[in-house]
Design a protein around this nucleic acid. Structure first.
Length: 739
DNA sequence: AGCACGCCGACT
DNA sequence: GTCGGCGTGCTC
């Protein structure tokens, strides 16, 4: 019998192994130990065959089976195999990404029920009575001597012994096993939620009516409209049918507060899955999910692969968030895979957002019955009033326009809280020489160094490189000057303008440890802090009931980007930040500082809100042939020299030409590659990063069929290109950021 | 990615 | 005379 085995390696193929007739054969989707080169690795069986093309001299036997049951159920395995193919990523790495590290390393699938310990006799006499030559037995005793009890797998691994050795010790009365204490089951009740408004009620009823079949529902609710409440009541309906629910959120930062709201409502076993867990915690959560012991799983991106035997509903919160697309390695979109998973399981998925992705809006436009709207804020709070502050015609102090300062002062005196949003951490983005125009650049990136610590330190935000700042210009010895504003400097300026007003800054530099964010948020909600400055961190999900004024300090950054998605991101950010204002009784005000008050993005957003902006953006995308009206993939390359990266991409392009792949694309009749184009290669917008030069080649087609067809023919050729050895290259299907 | 083999510079 | 640099070749 021949097994097709997926191995955690960047090689884009599976490896065939033999299993002899007498050996126990592992299940499909189960793990095996196999010899691989000179290593012994864990692989996952994904094919059973009678024959193989592999020459007999190369074919090897598997070493051992690890599992008697699959680690991935057939549905999940199929989804993973599909993903590997779709994202053109090596299967072994894809399967590894979906498995907790412990299982990747060969840990048992099921938690071991037995723990082994030394008996009293073993503790006193084993070392003296055991033969000096029984090294394995002695090391087991030694291992157990300084701990209470341990599962067999730990003991055997540490002692390098086999189960037989443990049994021999048991026979001599030196060790014994016992069942660990069973966990207490939770009561399994769902507390009633608050009463819903009409829109919420309609949404919950609609979702509940969809249970048991596939539908992709967009829950478009303005910030503060009570989306979480809708999720929870919809989940209650699934639980009532004994189903499991999967809740996906963009960031770990959002999980603690969401989890605590869920725990208050659901007195049921739940699990949390995110990158902040230890290997042991992740393994435990994964096992509980797989055994169906937990009813709800809340997790970040990779939780889309969580094993859930009775999955009945998927909820994806902040569905538009870019962190649902993995940005390195296996570049999957958790959003797209969650929809696919729901479709294959024939269950509904709820995509929630105040600022839906254009993909979701297009889908809702084509199938209006899938759109659920929450147009009003839940607690009867009024929507915030947005206005622009024209930076061209008034004096500013350190990036704060006079009108802005006056507004801040007014809100503070009225007893409100003020939040300032600036997507730029540090003190100043540039260190500049007034004498000769020199600026401090990163040695390894095409970027300015950012000034930190009131001008005492320089740091590169792209490669992490840090250095102490020189006071004088290295060229002309003039005193250097920090130019522009970051959150640190805004904090300093506000401190001088509003002495005595308690101030907090929230960004990656000020929030270092776990729990620090929570602590600051508590101080804010207790009204201890009146002025808040922060980056993205402020925009995501947190509730600030006392904030009455929100200021967006530099909206202009995203207005003229080359990235086709930048304007969508900017609009989403502005609307999300604006949504932080006036969530309780007091009405909110939002000020957006700009040099371009007539820019269509801003005027659309102000007069018609996110929907008007999105409408315009969709028309623009349709006209120019970008997603969601087309599909793209990006071939990225990075190398120690700019020439090497470009050479590889040119070679890749030529190879497509030579292989006839592009000729088909230009053929106007029924070619499978119709309408496909290659654009570039071109250097990345920031060509040099961390000392490596980056370039990209863009693939564009009217639908994903041609993209897939093209990549299937192209990738095997790329692997054989001589130029590929000089570069690190990767393919990004449905790329979201153009480098 | 690992890991080993293999052929040229500064050291016990 | 050896330790060790990373080029290149392979993994069923």
């Amino acid at each position: 019998m021949i097994l097709g085995v997926a191995i955690d390696t960047p090689l884009r193929r599976i490896f065939d192994y033999r299993v002899s007739a007498g050996q126990p054969s592992p299940p499909h989707g189960g793990r095996v130990w196999v010899p691989f080169g000179r290593r012994r690795v864990v692989g996952i069986v994904i094919e059973y065959r009678e024959h193989t093309e592999v020459p007999a001299g190369k074919l090897r036997d598997i070493h051992a089976c690890i599992d008697t049951e699959p680690v991935f159920d057939p549905q999940l395995l199929k989804l993973l195999l599909w993903s590997a193919e779709y994202y053109r990523h090596p299967v072994g790495e894809v399967l590894a990404a979906a498995l907790p590290a412990a299982l990747r390393a060969g840990a048992p699938l099921r938690e071991e029920l037995r723990v082994w310990r030394l008996t009293e006799a073993g503790r006193r006499q084993a070392m003296t009575q055991l033969s000096a030559r029984a090294t394995r037995l002695r090391s087991i005793v030694e291992y157990l001597a300084h701990r209470d009890a341990a599962p067999a797998s730990d003991i055997l691994q540490a002692a390098g012994a086999s189960m037989e050795a443990l049994h021999r010790l048991a026979a001599r009365g030196f060790v014994e096993w016992q069942q660990p204490v069973a966990e207490t089951a939770s009561s399994g009740t769902v507390h009633p939620g608050p009463s819903l408004n009409d829109a919420q009620q309609a949404a919950v009823e609609h979702i509940a009516a969809c249970l048991g079949g596939f539908s992709a529902l967009l829950l478009q609710g303005v910030t503060g409209s009570g989306k979480t409440e809708v999720y929870m009541q919809a989940i209650a309906a699934v639980l009532a049918r004994t189903g499991q629910a999967l809740v996906l959120v963009p960031e770990i930062a959002l999980t603690p507060q969401l989890v605590s709201r869920f725990r208050e409502r659901f007195d049921l076993p739940m699990a949390v899955l995110h990158s902040g867990l230890s290997d042991g915690e992740r393994l435990a959560a994964w096992r509980q999910a797989q055994l169906g012991q937990v009813h709800i799983v809340i997790g970040t991106r990779s939780a889309v692969f969580a094993p859930l035997p009775r999955l009945g509903l998927i909820v994806m919160d902040e569905e538009h968030d870019p962190s649902f697309k993995q940005q390195d390695g296996f570049r999957y979109s958790a959003r797209d895979l969650a929809i696919l998973r729901a479709q294959r399981l024939d269950i509904p998925i709820v995509l929630g957002s105040a600022t839906p992705s254009l993909e979701s809006l297009l889908h809702a436009r084509r199938q209006p019955e899938t759109l659920l709207r929450l147009p009003r804020r839940a607690a009867g709070a009024k929507p915030p009033r947005l206005s622009l502050v024209d930076l061209r015609n008034q004096p500013q102090t350190q990036g704060l326009a006079t009108a802005t300062v006056q507004a801040i002062d007014r809100h503070l005196r009225d007893g409100g809280q003020v939040m300032l949003f600036l997507n730029r951490r540090g003190y100043a983005p540039v260190m500049f020489c007034p004498g000769c125009g020199w600026t401090a650049q990163c040695r390894r990136c095409d970027a300015h160094l950012t000034v930190h610590g009131r001008g005492t330190q320089l740091a590169c935000h792209h490669c992490g490189n840090r250095q102490v700042v020189a006071e004088l210009c290295p060229l002309c010895s003039t005193m250097l000057k920090p130019v522009g504003q970051g959150t640190e400097r805004i904090e300093e300026t506000l401190g001088l303008m509003f002495p005595g007003v308690a101030l907090a800054r929230i960004d990656r530099d000020s929030i270092r440890r776990k729990g620090e964010l929570e602590a600051v948020l508590t101080r804010i909600n207790d009204n201890e802090v009146r002025l808040l400055v922060g980056t993205q961190m402020l925009t995501k999900g947190h509730d600030f009931p006392n904030v009455t004024l929100v200021v967006v300090l530099n909206a202009d950054q995203g207005l003229f980007s080359t990235d086709y998605r930048a304007s969508e991101r900017l609009a989403q950010t502005i609307v999300q930040v604006a949504g932080r204002a006036g969530r309780a009784q007091r009405p909110g005000e939002v000020l957006i500082q700009t040099e371009y008050p007539d820019h269509p993005l801003l005027t659309k957003l102000l007069t018609g809100g996110y929907e008007a902006f999105a409408e315009g953006a969709l028309q623009e995308r349709e006209r120019s042939g970008w997603p969601p009206f087309a599909r793209i993939a990006l071939l990225r390359a990075e190398a120690p020299t700019p020439a090497a990266a470009m050479q590889f991409l040119h070679a890749a392009r030529d190879a497509a030409q030579a292989g006839g792949l592009l000729a088909c694309a230009q053929d106007t009749n029924q070619s499978a590659l119709r309408g496909l184009r290659l654009l570039g290669p071109a250097p990345a917008p920031m060509e040099r990063r961390a000392g490596r030069f980056r370039a990209q080649l863009l693939l564009q087609a009217p639908s994903h069929g041609p993209v897939q067809k093209f990549l299937a023919g192209w990738l095997p050729i790329l692997e054989t290109l001589p130029a590929s050895r000089q570069v690190r290259w990767s393919i990004d299907v449905d790329a979201q950021e153009l480098f």
